[in-house]
Amino acid sequence: MKSLWEHADEIPVTLVILIACWTLALVTGLMQPDAERLAAYGWLTAMQVADGEPWRLVGYAFLHGGIVHIAFNTSMLAAAGPALERSLGSLRFAALFLGSAVGGGIAVCLLRQPFEPVVGASGALFGLLGAAVALFLRSGPHALSFLHFEGPRALLAMLAANLVIGWLLPFVSNTAHIGGLVVGFVLTLLYLSPPRRPSPWLGAWRLAGAALAASLCFASLLPVTRHEWLWNRSVDSGDAARAAQLRRAAAMAWLRQPTASEADVERFYRTIVEPDDAEPDSPR
């Protein structure tokens, strides 16, 4: 907190993020957030992203699920943000925060249930911690020299403790945490704080990293092997033959088998799409 006040003029991005988080918390309900408002302002579900709302990959990081959630996250941002922003520069810090938020969001889209909503800046905050570790690796006379100091060791311990807590608590999305952590670490190591004497492979790694990031974004926006997405596309499709193909593909993806008969499609419909409906003519 002290550094927040002392260096307020040097950390515009941290302040903007803090203000945005608290403003949205007031708008969506500070004590008990309204689910409809959270959904409208940008909570993240894999299916909404795949249905043409990619801005949710960033928006969810500014929303929170209650006062304890936002208080914890913003205090962590207030503790870690100023030092990192002053160290990296405001533009790079903004890129780091947003990139880590997107990384956490993509991890959620690819690995979690498609209709499970996620909110919170913790994925992006884990990205900041990953960036701090990457900066530590770069800073000393050798890669592991930061382990001789108590501060970095405490940060690593806190990181590990938070990951363990994330695993133990069912309402915490550790997938977003790990996604943000990995993206923050790699983004800083490859792009934001490259070594003073770059290796000849740095360019190749940067290119590969960018290709992988673009590809995973692509997979989140067009999850062509997810049965929910395939079924929705079959509903939207005007072509009857194409719609039948998409329904069979959806049933195959759900059953995890290489073929699907009409009976399988029917079973898929009755079990997943409209469990209470007898006729498969009006999917979700």
Partner: peptide, 18 residues
Amino acid sequence: LWLVHRGDPELAVRLALA
């Protein structure tokens, strides 16, 4: 997978499963 899906969605799912 997306390119395959454009032509044959079932093949894309089959490839992903395999």
